[in-house]
Design a protein around this nucleic acid. Structure first.
Length: 778
DNA sequence: CTCCTCCCTTTTTTT
DNA sequence: AAGGGAGGAG
């Protein structure tokens, strides 16, 4: 047991041992916060506390899994009985047990944001509400905020302040939309993310015996990332901890970055009020980052007005100064980052996993991915277009959802005609209207379509009947087949897989691969259960509950030794020796959506602070002078945050470089050179001279590059490297993007002249010669 | 009813 | 850049 304290400093030891009564740990970045939590839980268990009486709430699933693993390594498998997970996953599990009490069945569906949007969009359409005045995101945000403040539609509509706000915003229908959405979710036996928290509160408030049960169950409660909890989460914690009062919250006000979704940093202050006897401990020594990084981050955050006082310091070396890279375009930015990683790997024998690239928006990952691919650097993108948001996955999941929960209207509407069953919009609409008018659920009508007199042709009624029978047959196997087997059966029997295979689209292959991945996930899910020697089979229902709260596939199998790409938000809690923060431009980081109020800017600054403090050895900040956004090139200004880092922590003083263009030796100005060749030469040039070239020189090259590009743009035909007539069937060519290939066929003439080219990697492509800069090779 | 095409919006961040 | 919606042809 002593061992558990061995590697901890004094402040950390105290934090671990102070287990009784309310306590709050304010922990700066890199101060060993996770370590304290892990050791604290291990400490409790090894002091005889039953692990299933400990509730530990984290912010992400990833964090939960990692901590569980570390606790397991400290004290063994006993740790697995711990109640640990995100707020949403833990309380969804509890609600599943208690579902009947609050008017749900245990097979309730969890709607994600995409589902919610679909439903709200339908509501708007049905009620002929202008989506211009009621943008989906705004409506959703408004409803979400209400729920997070425990305001149900009734309270919403009778709250004069809210009504006044909506009136002022000229959106008086919001209350009605909210009510309709609310009813629809409940009718569908479904909860969205906010409902999980709302319903947990409802359960604790309306059912004293349930309240008592869970208050007495959880003897110790620990909450990570407390600064990012919202009001409804706060109330749950407060209620659950009332009996034992052994509640420990861990957080850092300087790292609160979820205000946009209702998180209240004030919860930290409120906690002091609710528990006046609470002990406050501070962890201020940073073990992660170099002095330069710590100091730079401190300087940045000192620009914020609202913060608790604390001093983050470190005994680490001064380390490298912070680097800045400025490029002409986002594309160039990505290339330079990739090359910098390449160089660093060479010079310092670093692993890929030592590197992370952060960005403000997911869309920025594309250019970076491409650059890394070209440089042959393995990488993994976290988040992005979440696996579970892909169309084919959502479709299949909709089948699963409908099988498990027949009342899931959204799922039904999504797939009743996918694959096409001849049940079109017109008929479907009649069914929906009939159901709504008669107070029936959609499934009631669909499953007994012949019973009702609806104005649809007998043929279509037959088709609906067949669909209903199909779903019923799936549902009948719910308890007897395990998740994997049933899912496989559904995907085949529904005709979905065949439909995908029969369409000859370029995406078909990827879609099928994604489905394969889904089934791998299912397999792993079922096999894990076997390992944990649970006798009962894991049903599709179990799988859905588990999976609907995951944002991405957690494949830990081969993500070792890859460069990590992620948003600054998802970087929270992680650390990497070499960190690149990209896109440091006004309107991007800080985001254009968050520069109107002081509070918004401060949140963006905290986000930048979080990003900076992930770095251990080196931080590289990059920004581009122009960037593709919404399919257009936009010119940018450097981020204000760059100015907030004192020059003494930066590699080079920032001063305007004077470029003497008269001296310019023009190596690549030959417009005849095709752009891929130019890029190749340029890259070669940069690679050879990377470390020694000054920014001025790089800038010159960039400038030339820009000129050629502009020339190409102004007069595309000029850029053609060869006479188009030379491109005939049988000739070997090289394409900028697809590489080497063989021309199979040429059609058309002049501007419409196109070639069918076979590329070994990507397959057959049809290319307009006007645009495709094909080069003839031998 | 389905399929095709064109146009439109969308993107801030996540459970 | 890409998916969804609207609208028209078959």
């Amino acid at each position: 047991m002593k061992d558990l304290l061995k590697d901890l400093n004094e402040a950390q030891q105290t934090a671990v041992q102070e287990t009784e009564g309310p306590s709050m740990i304010i922990a700066g970045p890199g101060s060993g916060k996770t370590r304290v939590l892990v050791h604290k839980i291990a400490w409790l268990i090894s002091n005889g506390v039953d692990s299933f009486r400990i509730l530990a709430l984290t912010f992400t699933n990833k964090a939960a899994n990692e901590m569980k693993e570390r606790i397991k390594n400290l004290i063994g498998a006993e740790a697995l009985n711990l109640w640990m997970g995100t707020f949403h996953s833990v309380f969804a599990r509890i609600l599943r047990i208690e579902a009947e009490k609050i008017g749900y069945t245990r097979n309730f569906t969890i709607y994600d944001t995409v589902d919610s949007k679909r439903i709200i969009s339908q509501i708007l359409k049905e009620n002929i509400i202008d989506a211009q005045i009621y943008p989906l995101n705004y409506v959703l945000w408004r409803i979400s905020s209400a729920k997070m403040n425990l305001i149900n539609p009734e309270n919403y509509n009778f709250n004069s302040q809210i009504q006044a706000e909506d009136l002022r915003a000229k959106k008086p229908l919001l209350g009605q939309i909210y009510q309709t959405y609310w009813n629809r979710c409940r009718r569908a036996n479904a909860m969205d993310f906010d409902d999980i928290l709302y319903n947990m509160n409802l359960l604790l408030r309306e059912f004293p015996e349930a309240k008592e049960k869970y208050q007495k169950k959880f003897q110790y409660i620990l909450i990570d990332e407390f600064q990012d909890t919202c009001f409804s989460q706060y109330v749950i914690i407060k209620t659950l901890s009332q009996h034992y009062r052994n509640v420990c919250v861990v957080g850092d006000d300087a790292q609160g970055i979820y205000g946009f979704r209702g998180a209240k940093i004030e919860n930290i202050l409120n906690f002091n009020k609710d528990y006046p006897d609470c002990r406050v401990m501070k962890l201020e020594q940073n073990y992660r980052s170099s002095k330069n990084i710590v100091n730079a981050a401190n300087s940045v955050i000192s620009n914020n007005h609202t913060q608790l006082s604390k001093t983050i310091w470190t005994e680490n070396d001064a380390g490298e100064k912070i680097k800045i890279i400025r490029t002409i375009s986002d594309h160039e930015e990505a290339m330079q980052v990739a090359q910098d990683i390449f160089q660093t790997k060479m010079n310092f024998q670093a692993d890929n996993s030592d590197f992370a690239i952060f960005y403000r928006t997911n869309a920025q990952s594309r250019a970076l991915e491409e650059a890394l691919r070209r440089t042959n650097i393995p990488y993994r993108v976290y988040g992005s277009l979440s696996f579970y948001k892909r169309k084919e996955i959502k479709d299949l999941m909709a089948y699963f959802r409908l099988t498990v929960n027949n009342n899931d209207e959204d799922a039904l509407l999504r797939i009743i005609n996918i694959p096409a069953r001849g049940i079109g919009d017109v008929s479907l609409n009649k069914i929906v209207v009939f159901a709504h008018e008669n107070g029936l659920s959609l499934w009631d009508v669909v499953s007994q379509i012949k019973k009702y007199r609806i104005e649809i042709s007998a043929g279509i009624a037959d088709k609906v009947d067949v669909f209903g029978t199909l779903i019923k047959s799936f549902n009948a196997q719910l308890e007897t087949k395990n998740a994997y087997d049933l899912a496989l059966h559904i995907s085949k029997a529904s005709g979905y897989i065949n439909m995908l295979k029969s369409v000859n689209e370029p995406e078909t292959q990827t879609r099928l691969e994604n489905i394969d991945e889904l089934f791998n996930g299912l397999k792993v899910f079922c096999e894990n259960a076997k390992e944990n020697d649970t006798e009962k089979i894991l049903t599709l229902s179990d799988f859905l509950l588990e999976v609907s709260l995951l944002t991405d596939l957690d494949d830990d199998k081969d993500n070792n030794n890859k460069v990590s790409l992620m948003t600054a938000h998802s970087a929270k809690g992680l650390e990497f020796p070499y960190v690149y923060i990209t896109g440091l431009e006004e309107n991007l980081f800080p985001s254009s959506m968050a520069i109107t109020t002081r509070a918004e800017i401060e949140e963006e600054r905290r986000l930048f602070y979080v990003a900076l403090t992930r770095g251990m050895k080196r931080i590289t900040l990059t920004h581009a002078e122009s960037r593709f956004r919404w399919g257009k090139r936009e010119f940018t200004q450097p981020s204000r945050f760059l100015e907030e880092i004192p020059e003494k922590y930066m590699e080079k003083p920032r001063k305007k470089e004077f470029v003497d263009w008269s001296e310019e030796k023009n190596n690549y100005e030959n417009v005849e050179v095709c752009s891929s060749e130019l890029r190749f030469k340029k890259q070669n040039f940069e690679q050879k001279s990377f470390s020694s070239k000054t920014t001025i020189e790089l800038k010159k090259i960039n400038q030339n590059f820009k000129k050629v590009k502009k020339a190409n743009y102004d007069n595309p035909t000029l850029a053609a490297p060869v006479n188009q007539d030379e491109i005939v069937a049988g000739v070997n060519v090289e394409h900028e993007k697809y590489g080497k290939g063989k021309v199979l066929q040429v059609d058309g003439a002049g501007n419409d002249k196109k070639a069918v080219v076979f590329f070994p990697v990507t397959g057959k492509k049809q290319l307009l010669l006007k645009f495709a800069k094909l080069k003839i090779i031998n």
